[in-house]
């Protein structure tokens, strides 16, 4: 907790960090796409392209549907962004450098990520249109499938630290990172992170086969807000992966926050690359895999970590 005079700094810092993360995600995704396609990277262009795209969306007119639930429709992107911010608040950038360094940080993250389902379903339903509603239904099925493995692997990282605080979990990785100690954890977490941010192979609620899913009817600034909020969720998940499995701020020579940002960026690149390299999976297949493969594997992860932590 900071002093009374600077309490307003925390939300400001959080907003700035998330905005930076969202922009970084957009740039990285573009670079990864070019690398995968084998065309020249064009770094300067990739750096300004997201701003150009955002300006284009800001200038384009909003769209309307017949009798939408307008308030819920406007609320959904804001809710998604707020939920991403709440999840990020628990993750420290350096020792003690978290907006909300609460003793139950993992639970705060889990609760925030559970609300992602609410925001996406609300976005799909409130437009009063068929394809968005289909996207919303898809996300409910998807979210119910990835939520259990997500919670289980996060419980597993809390076991060796004997604490639910994210800072303590990072400190507990001083000698050996959780990615080595719990080899099952990071892969499962990355799958659930892609599901959480409905990104890449799991971009089902906003997929092309439902004409763009929950965001079909959104246009202009509403669409920009939705995409930015979605990227913010992905940033939150990537930061959590960096803190929980890759040792967070721990690293030689460079200061802690730099390591944290670098690791988060690496996770973002990995998820983005999965999006450009792998085909979109079918939802029913993902649901079956999640319940019959991911959950048992995550349970094995929890039991093994528990025995190791004893």
């Amino acid at each position: 907790m900071s002093g009374a005079a600077t309490w307003w700094l925390a939300p400001l810092a959080l907003g700035a960090a998330l905005a930076g993360g969202v922009y970084l995600t957009a740039v990285l995704d573009r670079l990864v796409a070019r690398a995968v396609a084998g065309v020249p990277l064009g770094v300067p262009d990739a750096l300004v392209a997201p701003a150009r795209g955002a300006a284009l969306l800001l200038l384009s007119p909003p769209a309307a549907t017949e009798r939408p639930d307008a308030q819920s429709w406007a609320l959904a992107p804001a809710l998604l962004a707020a939920v991403a911010a709440a999840g990020t608040a628990a993750i420290p950038l350096g020792p003690g450098l978290a907006v909300a360094d609460v003793p139950d940080g993992i639970v705060l993250f889990g609760a925030a990520m559970a609300l992602v389902m609410v925001a996406v379903f609300l976005h799909g339903w409130s437009a009063n249109s068929a394809m968005p509603l289909l996207g919303g239904y898809r996300f409910v099925a998807q979210a119910l499938s990835y939520e259990m493995p997500l919670a289980l692997v996060l419980i597993a990282v809390a076991l060796p630290a004997q604490s639910l605080a994210v800072g303590d979990i990072v400190v507990a990785q001083e000698h050996i990172w959780n990615v080595v100690r719990q080899p099952l954890g990071l892969p499962i977490f990355l799958v659930t992170a892609a599901g959480l941010g409905f990104w890449g192979p799991l971009a089902l609620p906003d997929a092309a086969d439902v004409a763009g899913g929950t965001s079909v009817e959104a246009a202009g600034s509403a669409l920009l807000a939705w995409r930015a909020a979605r990227a913010a969720v992905l940033v939150a998940a990537a930061a959590m992966a960096a803190a929980a499995f890759l040792g967070g701020w721990l690293g030689p020579v460079l200061p802690g926050p730099v390591w944290m940002v670098a690791k988060t960026a690496a996770v973002l690149v990995a998820i983005s690359a999965a999006g450009h390299l792998l085909a979109r999976v079918r939802l029913e297949r993902f649901v079956v895999v999640a319940w019959t493969v991911l959950i048992p594997l995550a349970l094995v992860d929890v039991f093994a970590s528990g025995i190791l932590a004893l």
């Binding site: 609460v102 003793p103 139950d104 639970v107 705060l108 889990g110 609760a111 559970a114 609300l115 389902m117 609410v118 379903f121 409910v140 979210a143 119910l144 939520e147 639910l164």
Partner: peptide, 17 residues
């Protein structure tokens, strides 16, 4: 805190269902 957060965690899924 734990109970409050778990309440939100549980209810987010349940209310969507």
């Amino acid at each position: 805190e734990f109970l409050g957060l778990v309440l939100v965690l549980m209810m987010a899924g349940e209310m969507t269902i």
